[in-house]
């Protein structure tokens, strides 16, 4: 089985994020880069499928050179190899452009399963897995809290507002996962050492056969007009409970007309 896992390097989940004043893109220098948290679950799930069914796990990422750290982390968890799309002209690409680049690179490589985290912690759009499925004409099995592979059939539990749906498709298929699905492994020392020797295919826009006019900020389908930090919230009232905290809280809710 050939399995791909698409991962993204994002600013550290715990860091305050901001936009750049020059071009309104995410300031990726302001914080340490880490693998998007939900993508760790995608890597873990891919490795579990590989352990059960055999095959090969390939990491796919698009991002600046430093995103190589995220590739190495995924390799040290146990993936076999990676494809890293890196080109200055990717800068400012939106979801449509990103899905175009990823889908083009994945197409024709014979992947049976293409895993994603269900959203990135920076852009939080949750659209790229569906967009890649759309471009590749594949089934989408997204927001999975459980994945079962039997023969050529894949069944997931898709998280919904009221519980979950059981959704089934034949491979090849796109799968995105939520964090409930598993507990990602930590890279072992052996894994970290082994990752240094694993193959990483680095592709530029030209190498990947991509049309540069569809990529980058100039080609984006949306434009940021302006942005500003939300004005700091005026300090509220904080009281210490002396046995009547609940009553004081009720007074506040009454004053605000909630009760």
């Amino acid at each position: 089985m050939k399995i791909a896992v698409c991962v993204k390097q994002v600013p550290d989940t715990w860091a305050e994020k901001k936009l750049r004043s020059d071009d309104s893109t995410l300031d990726r220098e302001a914080a340490d880069g880490v693998m998007n948290e939900l993508d760790e679950y995608a890597v873990e799930e891919a490795l579990k499928v590989q352990e059960a069914h055999g095959g090969e796990v390939t990491i796919v990422t698009m991002g600046p050179e430093r995103a190589g750290e995220t590739v190495r982390k995924a390799l040290s968890m146990g993936a076999d190899g990676a494809i890293h799309l890196v080109d200055d002209a990717f800068h400012g690409s939106d979801a449509l452009a990103t899905s175009y680049a990823i889908a083009t690179v994945l197409a024709g490589r014979g992947f049976d399963l293409i895993f994603f985290g269900s959203e990135s912690t920076d852009a939080r759009m949750s659209v790229v897995p569906a967009m890649v499925a759309e471009r590749l004409g594949m089934a989408q099995l997204t927001f999975a809290q459980k994945v079962d592979v039997t023969g050529t059939s894949v069944t997931i539990q898709r998280v919904t507002d009221y519980g979950f749906e059981t959704v089934e498709a034949s491979m090849p298929t796109v799968v995105s996962v939520v964090e409930k699905i598993n507990e990602p492994r930590y890279p072992s020392f052996k894994g970290i050492m082994a990752a240094k020797k694993k193959p990483v295919e680095t592709l530029s826009i030209a190498d990947a056969g991509l049309d540069v006019s569809q990529l980058g900020q100039a080609a984006a389908w949306t434009v940021v007009e302006d942005f500003a930090a939300r004005p700091p919230k005026a300090a509220g009232t904080v009281v210490t409970d002396d046995g009547d905290g609940g009553i004081k809280l009720a007074d506040f809710l009454a004053a605000q007309k909630f009760i």
Partner: peptide, 25 residues
């Protein structure tokens, strides 16, 4: 820091008291 109103205290004391108070009112 985000609170319009905050209570520093044990939620198992404050919350049931609040619930009672809401029902009373």
């Amino acid at each position: 820091e985000l609170a319009d109103f905050g209570v520093v205290g044990d939620l198992f004391k404050v919350v049931p008291q609040l619930t009672e108070e809401i029902k009373k009112r």
